[in-house]
Design a binder for these strands. Structure first.
Length: 554
RNA sequence: GCGCCCGUAGCUCAAUUGGAUAGAGCGUUAGCCUCCGGAGCUAAAGGUUACAGGUUCGAUUCCUGUCGGGCGCACCA
């Protein structure tokens, strides 16, 4: 709301100065400065324009400030500061009315119509259906689900999608592995495949198969296809239920096999050929991706006639575009970053918008226990799964920790810390603030005190600081969405919780003074809404009460 | 050898897409409970942002190089 008003007001400033162009307005950057001495909002617009206007930045700023429409309901001052920043300070009227505004916004406070109706797809996790989800999948799930919510909160029509790689050599090996494990238990001789899936979960899956049918399949030539298909379904169902419990919901589970069946893969090859970027060499067919920024050309059809991963992947992204998405955000694991260039190049060759595909690499996670890295061997099937992690630390802590750091940075996940139910665990810091607020509101309600509905008096510095912070929430949401950086949410929420706790220690909420009590209850309630909305975007719960487990009290 | 991510306080990480005096948590030290939840609060200490240049009003951020860590570099996905 404030963001829109500021954009509009500065547009007016530019117009009055005779400098208004769409391009300049598009370059406008608004920010909430970290130092309150620099106002509640700031822009460097004058610094950006000074050069092209051949004027000193401060003179540009003065002119813009003079042309900024007065609005006492929001601003008390517009000042030129430093080398030429424009600093905007909230009026008392704005802060006094803020709790009512937050309350009116309710669960949509913080949301904004920045990209109304733009269809965006976020593809995330997309783990192979040949094994349980691992911790990097868990990180991707936390980030992806948060991104979907952030995009929705900023007006996009966003959908989450899980791409199922149910085709290719890996799933065949998986089917063989499962058949061998089933045979082993049934006392039938059958070789376990080389490089087969060693994990104990394959034996578990074998126990879930319908025994009579499985036995029949064992006897048939090519019977591993039966095990492959049934194993995939069981595995997918496990992944789905884990993710469901984890709070990552997908609008769609897209299977690679449908692209092959529908002919989309073949059509994609034809489309590439029509563009004249396919050639034959060494018995294989290549795409000239080097013409579009790749560092080497890529094989799309092997000499044995089978497509490489790239071709269905290109077909998949064409399909996304054809389904009407304006952009696709893919979250990939760290071992896939080598594929960004080939895929983008191929899409480029097909004429898709250059910014259609956006790939975010979710970096690796190092689990630490007792200060030491937890050893994981995928080969031996020994790894900590997402389910293990949820059982160990709970979904809330897992998600909070995963969202705490920027997605592109490696993450050290301290299991001991996440397990602790005490002040060393940052998850509880924010949740505790919410629970404490709920407690205060219960206490107040028992005394017949409700939040003040209209403008409230704002006296203490702690009240003012907290209100400023609450007012910044919509901008944090907007910024996190456009930058695709969900980690701004926990950072903001920790700051907000800190300001709330400080307020709480200085400002008695429920007192003999009923009017002041109601005013402060309104502040507390507004804080509750912001914390709840922020945690909600992270997929973390906002508890009304918190109790430690008995063993954690010591 | 080439590409990508990263290098910031003792540790784990931020720094609002180039902004103003680089901030949090943990750890360390010293304090705060007659009253709304102490999973809390206050204060102190802690930095040549790996290093050297460059670009400009301004660089942790962008460019070049060096050093160090991780991950990729398939007719596997």
């Amino acid at each position: 709301m404030v963001w829109a008003k500021l954009t509009e007001g500065l547009g007016e400033s530019l117009r009055r100065a005779g400098w208004l162009t769409d391009e300049r307005l598009g370059r406008l950057e608004l920010a909430v400065p970290r130092d309150p001495a620099h106002g509640d909002w700031t822009t460097n617009l004058a610094l950006l324009l000074a050069r092209e206007l051949s004027m000193p930045p401060r003179a540009v700023a003065e002119k813009l400030a003079a042309g900024f429409p007065a609005d006492a309901s929001t601003w008390s001052s517009v000042e030129v500061a430093g080398p030429g920043f424009l600093n905007f300070t909230y009026s008392d009227a704005f802060l006094r009315g803020l709790p009512a505004a937050v309350r009116a916004g309710g669960e949509t406070f913080g949301h904004g119509p920045h990209d109304p109706g733009t269809r965006v797809q976020v593809e995330y996790v997309s783990a192979n259906p040949t094994g349980p989800l691992n911790v990097v999948n868990g990180r991707a799930a936390a980030v992806g689900a948060a991104l979907v919510r952030l995009l929705e909160a900023t007006g996009h029509r966003a959908e989450g999608e899980f791409y199922v790689n149910d085709t290719g050599a890996q799933v065949e090996v998986f089917g063989e592995s499962l058949a061998a494990r089933f045979a082993e238990r049934a006392g039938i001789e059958r070789a376990f495949p080389e490089n087969g899936y060693q994990g104990e979960y394959v034996r578990d899956l074998g126990r879930e198969l319908p025994p009579a049918e499985a036995r029949r399949a064992l006897g048939e030539p090519g019977g591993s296809a039966w095990f492959r298909d049934h194993g995939l379904e069981l595995m997918l169902e496990r992944q789905r239920s884990d993710l469901d419990q984890y709070g990552a919901v997908f609008s769609n589970w897209f299977r690679e096999s449908t692209l092959h069946r529908s002919g989309a893969v073949a059509r994609t090859l034809e489309a590439l050929e029509e563009r004249g970027v396919v050639y034959e060499a060494e018995g294989a067919r290549w795409v000239r991706t080097t013409a579009f920024g790749d560092d080497k050309d890529r094989v799309v059809v092997r000499s044995n006639g089978v497509a490489t991963y790239l071709l269905p992947d290109v077909a998949y992204h064409r399909d996304k575009r054809a389904r009407g998405f304006r952009s696709a955000i893919d979250l990939w694991g760290p071992d896939h970053h080598g594929h960004i260039l080939p895929l983008k190049a191929a899409l480029d060759a097909l004429g898709l918008e250059p910014d259609f595909l956006e790939v975010i690499i979710v970096q690796q996670v190092n689990l630490l226990a007792g200060g030491e890295p937890v050893k994981m061997s995928k080969r031996a099937g020994e790894f900590i799964t997402l389910r293990d992690l949820m059982d160990e630390v709970g979904p809330d802590c897992a998600k909070f920790f995963f969202l705490l750091r920027s997605t592109s940075a490696h993450l050290d996940f301290d299991l001991d810390l996440a397990k602790q139910q005490n002040d060393e665990n940052p998850t509880y810091y924010v949740q505790y603030a919410h629970a404490r607020i709920a407690s205060i509101l219960r206490f107040a309600s028992e005394r017949g005190l409700e939040p003040a509905r209209g403008p409230i008096p704002v006296e203490a510095a702690e009240e003012r600081a907290l209100l400023r912070k609450l007012a910044a929430f919509p901008e944090v949401v907007r910024g996190a969405a456009v930058a695709r950086e969900p980690h701004r949410l926990p950072a903001y929420l920790m700051e907000t919780a800190a300001l709330f706790h400080r307020f709480y220690h200085v400002c008695r909420v429920v007192s003999e003074d009923r009017e002041r009590s109601r005013a402060r209850i309104a502040i507390v309630d507004a804080t509750r809404i912001v914390l709840r909305n922020g945690l909600g975007l992270m997929g973390v719960t906002s508890p009304e009460r918190m109790e430690r487990d008995a063993e954690s009290v010591a």
